[in-house]
């Protein structure tokens, strides 16, 4: 059977500018400020609108036409500021670039935002695994920053905090096109 090929992108919304609404902003560690929850006003329709707007701005009607067919929001969690979107495999880079160029949520929220792509995969299972892995990691980091991590004692925590990042931690893992050659057969 012929299948339409997709790419699933895992997005992470970051908020680098100080939050003007909360009053106790100075006391929160920066890690939590950057990863603070997204406004509840963000729903799937609004996210799609933002993506389409971005693609139109960068790639015009052609870009939207090419991307629009397979664009879908599979998962959106405002509490953890993550989302999984699906887009056509041939043009996932357009969507990625449009998200990179995004600096602000559309009208009703109107909040500055930086969108970071965390994982690109051909199957949604891998992306879901990554979501869970990242959630665990960020809780660990928040505890480290807070000083409340106590599982392995203070020495282990210091070692963990000082450990250098490897390239793999930073770079997005993009799944290879294993079946590019078989594309013509379909």
């Amino acid at each position: 059977m012929v299948r339409v090929k997709h790419r699933y992108l895992l997005l992470n919304f970051l908020y680098p500018t100080p939050d003007t609404t909360s009053t106790y902003k100075e006391t929160i560690p920066e890690l939590l400020q950057f990863n603070h929850p997204t406004s509840d006003q963000l729903n799937i329709g609004l996210l799609l609108k933002a993506i389409r707007g971005g693609v139109t701005e960068l790639f015009g009607d052609y870009g939207v036409g090419v991307v629009n067919q397979g664009l879908k929001v599979n998962y959106l969690s405002t509490a953890t500021s993550t989302a999984i979107i699906r887009c056509p495999r041939a043009h996932y880079q357009l969507v990625w670039a449009a998200l990179t160029f995004m600096t602000k949520w559309p009208r009703p929220i109107d909040q500055p935002v930086v969108v970071k792509i965390v994982r690109v995969s051909g199957t949604i299972i891998k992306v879901e695994e990554e979501v869970i892995r990242r959630a665990k990691k960020i809780i660990e980091r928040a505890k480290l920053a807070d000083g409340t991590a106590d599982a392995e004692g203070p020495v282990a925590n210091i070692v963990k905090a000082a450990r250098r990042r490897t390239e793999r931690d930073v770079l997005v893992e993009v799944d290879e096109d294993r079946d590019r050659d078989s594309e013509s057969d379909e």
Binding site: P16, W96, A97, K116
Partner: peptide, 18 residues
């Protein structure tokens, strides 16, 4: 010029590849 202009390494690489 402001914090909002910063992007993660992978995003920059993708942008360059576009």
């Amino acid at each position: 010029k402001s914090v909002l202009g910063l992007r993660a390494p992978s995003d920059v690489i993708n942008l360059a590849s576009v």
